[in-house]
Amino acid sequence: MSDTDIAARVLTAPRRFETRRFDRPVLGADDGLLGVLACGLCGSDVASWRGEKKHDGPVVLGHEVIGRIADLGPAAAALWDVRPGDRVAIEEAVPCMFCALCRSGHQRLCTRSGIRYGYTSTDTAPSLWGGFAPLMYLHPRTQLHRVPDSVSDELATLYIPLSNGLAWMGDSGELRPGERVAIFGAGQHGIASAAAALRLGASEVVVVGTDRDGDRLAVARELGSQVVVAPAEDVEEAVVEVLGGSPDIVMDMTPSVAHPVEASIRLAAVRGRVLWGGMKRGASRPLIDTDLVAQKELTVRGLWARPSWAITAALRWLASEPALGRLCERTYRIDELDNAFVDAAGEGSAPAPLHTAVLMN
């Protein structure tokens, strides 16, 4: 393989990766190339692998990308303020920067550009749009964040769940110091959000899991949260008892199941905030008591990605609090990608890890 021939792991069908080779992109003045060091593997990647999430063709997955600038044009160097060799994290959304969403600071929600790292098909030139490849193309409107030297490549891949937790609790939940928080779901986003709530001043935080989540709930405890495991019919009473009152913020981060959505409305304190981020993907149809939403004057918000400030904050948090590395439970090499997905989907011999990092070397 020549240095102009880039081998990438491409998802070509559900549960099927192939190694395909692509020409090294030819750069202009305002774009660049990233030498990928590590990439996180998250639940949305697993959904793509299972065929639950549709793409417009074969795709190089991976959007939690840490890498070093490999090459860039002069305009890109000036705009991004980086040089070859600088280590950065990328935002997966490539915004248009002209629509009302982008101009109001909500560029993470922009779909006008049609480009998203880890999602865009290899049929769209120059094909290298994901992190499970040694080299990734950097679009001129890519948003980059420097990674602190003290944070390893492996642990730096936690920047997405940690930044989501900070943004969801701070911006979406409008958390005020001293408030109580309940989180349904003991995955990486649930536990990262619990840790973020405590960092932002919550007085009590409880993570609700199942009897299969013992190891994950142990991590939640290590990071300062309380935990609840109870049958569905008893869980609301158990949460209130542990917190010492109704939660001001209730978050649902559970995939596929309806009960936490329904319980969140009943559990939330008067004028509380209810946050929904657990993707159901058609697997369940929650029944919402809209009268209770009105009577309690609840604020209900969906959760999708994070603003840019939160990524910088998450990387600094990682640098200052090494214990957060406990969230990264398993590491694979890129040649072990098939096994990494089997394990992340919970189909391996051990329980699915909280967070998985894939290293290029």
Rank of each mutant, 00 (worst) to 15 (best):
M136I: 08
D31F: 01
E179T: 02
G302T: 07
I191F: 09
G173N: 03
G105C: 10
E179Q: 15
M360E: 06
R141A: 15
A133C: 09
L79E: 13
I6T: 03
A323P: 00
R281K: 12
V208Q: 01
V59N: 02
G245E: 02
R68M: 08
V82G: 06
A314F: 04
R24S: 04
D338L: 05
L166A: 03
L315R: 05
D5R: 14
V82E: 08
A133W: 00
L217N: 03
L144A: 08
S308E: 12
E336Q: 15
T111Q: 14
A78R: 15
T157I: 09
S203A: 15
V208L: 02
E154M: 12
A323W: 09
R301D: 05
A294C: 13
M253F: 12
F341N: 04
E236Y: 01
V206A: 11
A38F: 04
T157W: 06
L155P: 00
G170A: 13
S121D: 05
G278Q: 05
L128I: 08
R20K: 10
W317G: 04
T120W: 01
G85P: 02
A238V: 01
L128A: 09
W168D: 00
G277K: 03
A192F: 04
R108V: 08
D153W: 00
G165R: 01
A310T: 10
G170E: 07
H189E: 12
G214D: 11
S44V: 03
S193V: 07
V26S: 13
P177Q: 10
T142M: 10
E329Q: 14
L166F: 05
G131T: 05
F17I: 01
G272D: 08
S121Y: 03
Y159G: 01
I66V: 13
R141F: 10
E179N: 03
D252Q: 06
R180D: 05
M97L: 15
W80S: 04
R281A: 11
I90M: 10
R68I: 06
V219N: 01
A345Y: 03
W49G: 00
V242A: 12
M279K: 11
R68K: 15
Q107F: 14
Y117Q: 04
V358W: 06
E262M: 09
V228T: 09
S264G: 10
K280R: 14
D291H: 14
G277L: 04
A38R: 05
A89P: 01
P74F: 08
T120I: 02
A156K: 02
L138I: 02
R24A: 03
C110M: 06
A100R: 12
A323N: 12
V257F: 04
